[in-house]
């Protein structure tokens, strides 16, 4: 039986020579997040922090640790969930989220695709695939990002926390690399985006250096109610294939995901500089007024293509 490096208690965690018991793993996990917040200045005392949450393990871990940090530093915060309308999936995780927020007395706002775009994802997924050749994850991603930003902004948020972890970042890096989208990589990092704009609430990722396996362990040890729950549309996603390949690599070469993301962070300042110089000025969507790169933003264009506009 493996024992903790620090106290000789029974180990629950082992990674690249670091072996920890429950108590020391929880401390390691929370300290790593606090260090990320401080190193990258994710929050300031005057911030109004909006935490994007779905009820899954990553968002609950982000919600819990961000709540702790905000309380310690007297920063105001609230949670925001998007109900995409994915039957048999989102309804379950939202129930878990409601219970979690009630237990910790976290203000929670929920907005839905139905109220914002006039239809649930279930209602538009087939049409998007058949007529636009767009996978549900593409449609969901555009509408979800837009809903989070618009709602967070309307609620007065100055920062938007997402539960993205090291696995998500490594997957995005590899996907963009494989698809030749280097400019998209310039928008990654612990603080998302290439340049600031009043219309965008800056997105920050406190779980940036946390493995997905670590959030699952944290959720288990903290007794968060988290059950295996995978989006029914995941099988159509490119991300799933990349995720599985990366996990194979991690098994053969432990630390591969950390290595990949740390190497990326070394070149990120150069990438940002390069694409900031090439970037044209923001324009504003003729339909909704959001900042975008063309005449109409992606969400409004998609609404028109799917005939969701009045």
């Amino acid at each position: 039986m493996a024992k903790c490096n620090k106290c000789e208690q029974k180990a629950v965690y082992s990674n690249q020579g670091l072996v920890l018991c429950k108590e020391h793993f929880l401390d390691y996990f929370e300290t790593k997040i606090e260090k990320t917040i401080k190193k990258y200045n994710l929050f300031s005392p005057s911030d109004q922090v909006c935490i994007a949450a779905s009820g899954g393990k990553d968002s609950l871990a982000a919600l819990y640790t961000t709540m702790q940090f905000c309380k310690e530093h007297s920063i105001s915060f609230f949670a925001l969930a998007i109900d995409e309308g994915i039957g048999g999936y989102r309804d379950h995780t939202l129930d878990d989220l409601r219970n979690f927020c009630q237990a910790y007395e976290i203000p929670l706002h929920i907005v839905s695709f139905k109220e914002q775009y006039g239809a649930t994802l279930d209602q538009i997924r087939d049409k998007a695939l058949a007529t636009l050749n767009k996978k549900p994850c593409t449609v969901c991603g555009i509408f979800r990002r837009t809903s989070l930003n618009r709602t967070a902004r309307a609620l007065g948020a100055t920062k938007l926390v997402t539960g993205h972890n090291l696995d998500d970042e490594a997957q995005s890096l590899l996907m963009n690399q494989l698809l030749g989208n280097m400019s998209h990589n310039a928008s990654l990092g612990p603080i998302t985006g290439l340049s600031a704009n009043d219309k965008f609430v800056p997105r920050v990722k406190p779980l940036y250096f946390i493995l997905e396996k670590e959030t699952r362990l944290f959720a288990f040890l903290k007794k968060f109610k988290v059950e295996f729950n995978e989006c029914p549309n995941i099988n159509l996603s490119f991300r799933m294939q990349v995720r599985d390949q990366l996990n194979e690599m991690e098994n053969k070469l432990p630390g591969a995901k950390h290595g990949m993301v740390n190497a990326f962070l070394e070149i990120l300042p150069l990438l940002k500089k390069h694409y900031q110089e090439k970037k044209t000025e923001f324009s504003y969507c003729l339909e909704c007024g959001d900042a975008c790169s063309g005449k109409v933003c992606n969400a409004c264009r998609l609404e028109e293509e799917l005939e969701l506009k009045d």
Binding site: M1, A2, V12, C137, C140, E212, R216
Partner: peptide
């Protein structure tokens, strides 16, 4: 009902759960 590391010995009387790390979309 307790987390173990993969190198831990198992016995016939044990009840094992294999929890998925991956979830979400």
């Amino acid at each position: 009902k307790e987390i173990i590391l993969p190198d831990e010995a198992l016995q016939d009387s044990d009840e094992i759960q294999i929890l998925s790390v991956i979830s979400g979309g």
